[in-house]
């Protein structure tokens, strides 16, 4: 459905995006994920036609649209600031796109009603955007973008600025709508929870280049670079050299010996071993398994549905562990942390 080929954008001497290529199939939900300044917004704006590429082509439904102005591309877009026209009612906002795409007056009325029904806002049609809450504005913004059945839906960090609870609600709601309508969607965000919870595939961007492209599981479980491993999800990191020991492969990090899976690189290589917090087990008594280390509880943060514990090992290294909520530990307890060999990510 969408093909971006060799997209490059320079602002003067500054390279915002460098030779980015990816495809999105019809109906897919793909997220461009990356920190500020990584070029994700620039890419989205270029696909919309609001930014002119320095190099590269954009293809929509097989047609080369690179030289087409935005109004001829039949795309839908929701903006970070919602960009709802303040001087028009909700109805007029949604009707605007329909009118510009050539729908007849009779058609427009019906379609506006359908759009409002889709996003659960039928009773607000005569309100002005200023009278709506942030979440309501985002919903109208989406309705407006989808009203004329665009080929692709572009979303520019729409959930930034909403409070946590609303953000989580909106994520599942957004995904539900997207599946219901079946529209190809490209979503841009710096929030990895957005990316992991909603997408079919994720494109991780850094400094204008794609670091990794894959499903959320792939990105999370098998990151291909330290950047991806650290940007997506939390982890504890152990750095050191690979060595042979006890019939297996280990890395000596400070004073600890971490046993690595068989897929680890050959001895002598410098590596970083990552362990996800949910793979770290905490117990009062030692279980005598591999990769077990003693430590003291430094901090317990209760994050609602789970707890994040910070444990300081004997050599000063801090380890992050996620447990069920309100765990049976207290700050200062002496505990043992353990993680399985095959849960270690080596890069």
């Amino acid at each position: 459905m969408l093909e971006v080929e060799g997209f490059t954008k320079y602002y003067g001497d500054l390279c915002a995006v460098d030779d980015l290529s990816f495809r999105i199939e019809a109906g897919e939900f793909v997220t461009l994920l990356g920190p500020s300044g990584c070029g994700k917004s620039t890419t989205l704006h270029a696909i919309a036609g609001l930014v002119e590429p320095t190099e590269g082509r954009t293809r929509l439904r097989g047609d080369d649209v690179t030289d087409l102005p935005p109004e001829k591309r039949n795309i839908g877009m929701a903006f970070q600031s919602t960009a709802l026209f303040p001087h028009m009612t909700v109805r007029e906002n949604i009707a605007y796109g329909l009118r510009m795409h050539g729908y007849s007056k009779a058609d427009i009325e019906g379609r506006v009603d359908d759009s409002l029904a889709l996003v659960d806002m039928p009773e607000h049609s005569e309100h002005k955007p200023g009278e709506l809450s942030g979440g309501q504005q985002q919903r109208v913004s989406l309705a407006r973008a989808l009203a004329y059945e665009p080929d692709i839906l572009l979303l520019d960090e729409p959930l930034t600025g909403l409070d946590r609870v609303l953000q989580e609600e909106m994520r599942s709601w957004l995904r539900r709508i997207q599946l219901e309508v079946g529209v190809t969607t490209l979503y841009v965000t710096h929030d990895q929870e957005d990316a992991l919870s909603m997408s079919d595939r994720v494109v991780v961007l850094r400094d204008g280049r794609a670091e990794q492209i894959g499903s959320p599981e792939l990105i999370y479980e098998s990151p291909e670079s330290p950047f991806v491993a650290e940007f997506v999800g939390k982890s504890t990191q152990f750095t050191g050299k690979v060595a042979e020991a006890d019939g297996g492969v280990v890395v000596h990090s400070d004073n600890k010996k971490i046993t690595l899976p068989d897929s680890a690189p050959s001895p002598g290589t410098d590596v970083t071993a990552y362990v996800r917090p949910e793979d770290v087990r905490v117990s009062i008594d030692p279980t005598r398994s591999t990769n077990e280390f003693p430590g003291t509880v430094l901090n317990i943060s209760n994050l609602g549905n789970r707890a994040e514990m910070t444990i300081e090992l004997t050599d000063g290294k801090t380890v992050l562990a996620h447990t069920g909520r309100f765990p049976n530990f207290a700050v200062g307890d002496n505990v043992y942390i353990q993680f399985d060999i095959d849960r270690v990510i080596v890069l």
């Binding site: 704006h45 919309a48 609001l50 935005p70 109004e71 839908g76 903006f79 960009a83 709802l84 605007y96």
Partner: peptide, 10 residues
């Protein structure tokens, strides 16, 4: 962004 939105809307 209002101007961008208007362009994208057709």
């Amino acid at each position: 962004e209002l101007i961008d939105a208007s362009r994208v809307l057709g």
